Amino acid sequence: MHIDIISVVPGLLEGPFSHSILKRAEDKGIAKIQLHNLRDFATGKQKQVDDYAFGGGAGMVMMIEPIARCIESLQEKRTYDEIIYMTPDGKRFDQPMANALSLQQNLLILCGHYKGVDERVRERYITKEISIGDYVLSGGELAAAVVADAVIRLIPGVLNDETSALTDSFQDDLLAPPVYTRPAEYEGMNVPEVLLSGHEAKINEWRFEASVRRTKERRPDLMEKSPTKGSDNQ
């Protein structure tokens, strides 16, 4: 997978992509992330990428010209499966969307900034608009890092244990069950005996029931989508 990210402040993304799973994926040659400074595609001494909004109002708007030059320059190098714009009014990012994007080969992510981008950018270039939640950040950089991390960790070969991602929360519209490690007893608190039994079927049953119980308690909204809805186990 190749992910290109366009940003006004690409330095914000250097840290997240230089460590942990994302760095491992790049070292293995499984995924590559390239950051592109939008100011490199601006003209004039000031390298201006924003201007006042027509009609007035507070805040600046990202101009279409440098964005168009940047996107079209990148399109000369590769064909993108999706050109994504990170914006608060995009579709809410979730695990099914991450799963779908992980099957793609080339993604381009445009990070919003200021009051957003000239609407004509969205009309001409953007194929998917994504939000990571109902709140506003200073820019789309951190949101882009969230999307890249969630997507890349799903690619086969990135995680040491290939089954790990399949048992994450939200993969089956359930939260993950509680997990424990050594010691088996700590200050009177004990690990559930079934997890120490070595009986795989009973352990799997306990984990499923614990997932359902935790989801009902913490995210009852997910139960409406869960395959367990309407079952006797509820």
Rank of each mutant, 00 (worst) to 15 (best):
R78W: 05
D89S: 15
E129D: 09
V117I: 12
A143L: 06
V147M: 04
Y114P: 01
Y85S: 14
P178Y: 04
G139Y: 03
V158F: 13
N160A: 10
E193I: 12
Y80S: 04
R182P: 10
L175D: 09
V179Q: 15
R182D: 07
I126Y: 00
K91W: 06
Y125D: 00
A165S: 10
P183N: 09
F93W: 14
A201V: 08
V151G: 04
T167G: 13
A145F: 06
K115H: 04
G116M: 07
D89E: 14
L108M: 08
Y85D: 09
E193S: 11
G188Y: 11
H199G: 02
A143Y: 07
S169F: 10
I109T: 06
N106T: 14
T87Y: 14
N160L: 10
P183E: 05
L142G: 04
K115I: 11
A176G: 11
E82D: 14
T167E: 15
I83E: 06
G116F: 05
S169W: 04
N160Y: 03
V191C: 04
L103P: 03
Q105W: 02
R153V: 00
V151H: 01
Q171D: 09
I152S: 10
Q104R: 15
S211Q: 07
S197M: 00
P88C: 06
L196G: 03
P177C: 13
K115C: 01
Q105C: 01
E205N: 13
G112L: 03
V191T: 12
E82H: 15
T79W: 07
E162F: 01
N99T: 15
N190M: 12
E123L: 09
K202Y: 01
D94H: 04
I152C: 01
I130A: 13
E129F: 11
C111P: 02
R124P: 01
D81N: 08
D168H: 11
D149F: 05
V117W: 02
G140A: 02
Q171C: 04
D161W: 04
S211D: 08
L103W: 03
L175Q: 05
A148W: 02
D173A: 15
R124G: 05
G188T: 03
